[in-house]
Design a protein around this nucleic acid. Structure first.
Lengths: 142, 142
DNA sequence: ATTATAAATTATAATTATTCTAAACTGTTG
DNA sequence: CAACAGTTTAGAATAATTATAATTTATAAT
């Protein structure tokens, strides 16, 4: 989904009923310039900031998972204690700032193609993604 | 830590008291041929299979975290709902089998050096790791 | 339009992984 | 072997997520 889309139509085409809540959530998620990296909590916070209406936590979970299943959101694993989602659903790489716990998309040309020479027999490769963990120069983590 | 180590001495050197429980856990973790990828639950199961004694869940958590802090275990993020740990603490890449939820180490030469051309200003790169997600050829995930 | 119905929303309860707590126990040092 | 700090433990607390069941809503059929 892209910015300023007709979310009602798009949702319907996708096989998801365009409910008030879903349309609002799509607006919050996709009407932005940059990709949005978020946890469910971030999203709930954004929703209550940007809208008057409140949307139930269960609905936020349901909708995010529905959008993910349909390929409009992607789950990212960096941290085991929370789920991060990404509005950029293409295969791409990330920087993870261990100081601020921020996830940053890599520009396509910042990492050159990763060459996987062997594969597990009988399996196909679904994705190849790189995580670059960074931290401020002077910090030691023991 | 490596296979058949004198864990009592090793723990003491590391600054961890070699308690009965810690030594047992080290045996389960490190007396193996291959690296061991596990969740806390896997480890608890292995402990009750391989030992008679039972070790409290809190102790297993404490010990795993202590060993991780000291650099004998490494946490891997694939899945947000559980923490995976790895007895191979070097920077290395993984295959993740999405059918069986198994994590498999890449051989060093299976993926050639990943070249990160740019970095976040003022930060140093701590690690660059690749996750290759694979699944059986005929499976669709919708 | 109205109605029927299947799908979605909601508040709340349940579940799961993990962390905290405080009391009992154990390894080490003198 | 006594003292003390570090560990273990069961169980309580917390946090993220999922399930439940009643209510509401979108859509299709009338």
């Amino acid at each position: 989904m892209t910015k300023n889309f007709n979310f009602i139509e798009k949702l319907r085409e996708t096989g998801l009923r365009p409910t008030k809540q879903r349309v609002k959530i799509c607006e919050v998620l996709f009407n932005r310039d940059k990709t949005f990296h978020f946890t469910i909590n971030d999203l709930v916070k954004k929703i209550s900031e940007e809208l008057n209406e409140k949307i139930s936590l269960a609905t936020v979970y349901n909708t995010v998972h529905a959008l993910q299943k349909k390929g409009y959101l992607k789950e990212i694993s960096i941290n085991s204690d929370k789920s991060y989602f990404d509005t950029n659903t293409t295969t791409h790489h990330h920087f993870y700032d261990e100081d601020t716990h921020q996830l940053i998309d890599c520009d396509e040309n910042e990492i050159e193609n990763v060459n996987v020479k062997n594969n597990i027999t009988g399996k196909k490769i679904n994705s190849v993604e790189v995580l670059v963990r960074v931290a401020s120069d002077n910090q030691n983590q023991n």
